[in-house]
Amino acid sequence: MYSQGLIGAQTSTEEDEAFLARFQERIDAEEKIEPTDDMPEGYRRTLIRQIGQHAHSEIVGMLPEGNWITRAPTLRRKAALLAKVQDEGGHGLYLYSAAETLGVTREQMSEELLAGKAKYSSIFNYPTLTWADIGAIGWLVDGAAIMNQIPLCRCSYGPYARAMIRVCKEESFHQRQGYEIMMTLARGTDAQKEMAQDALDRWWWPSLMMFGPHDGDSVHGDQSAKWKIKRFTNDELRQKFVNATVPQAEFIGLKVPDPECRWNEEKQGYDIGPIDWDEFWRVVKGNGPMNRERLEARRKAHEEGAWVREAANAYAAKRKARKQAAKIAAE
């Protein structure tokens, strides 16, 4: 999903050649770039955009799963889902903080999200219709996210790389709990198995779209790769994901909804059928099934939480004034 963070990124930069060459030398030597270091404006802008979108994705990503917390089938499933959604919230916060080291404020980023100017991963604009969707999200959506995030642990920007290490470590349970749900359903009654297959049918292609456009159509990949923000191309990561996931589906007796999906001995990977890029762009541009509802939910949460932020500030000011008064009285 994080490759989508580069869509529309302005990687152009205006520094002189010598400065850019020095910066590139540091990157090539695998030196991490830290917040107070000199960096090209294009590098800073690209990262603010990508990390910001990554953070928004974590936060909006809480919504489709949150939809099922009260209806989880057992206490075990409910505790796991709560813990997972809580993690996503935490991951959003690590990422916002990493973006803030680049000179953007949390308020600016939230405003951009709520105004519909900042993007988040297209995957969260699909609805969670059945309990099996919770399994499919953990298995496929988190699986795809992990594929993207593992190389980001080596990203050239220090605070982003360190946040990713933490996120990857915490996220290792997310995919397993999803697969466990799918496996349980796939081994259940006919109706349960059907529900699992239906979820796979609906989530498979949107999950493949999470990796972003094909390499040939992705304009900003080159500069990002040169700056070592991105370590693998969209298609490379998508292929890794397909290779890992197709056998996992087969293992539990499910089938990915792609009649052209078959093993290619020569490339030692699966070939897949064409991705519907019209659908992808429709969702990215705001016209997916749930885009309006997701933003509406975020706006509502922001507005309804306003009194909490105001009250906390008022309470802190009051406490400070009291402390000062006590200090003056003591002197």
Binding site: R76, A80, A83, G143, S172, F173, Q175, R176, Q177, Q248
Partner: peptide
């Protein structure tokens, strides 16, 4: 006591490979 926050809490057969 929140052991479900750890990957080992979930039963995934070895045949599935690393996840």
């Amino acid at each position: 006591d929140k052991i479900y926050r750890h990957p080992t809490f979930y039963d995934i057969p070895d045949d599935v490979g690393h996840m």
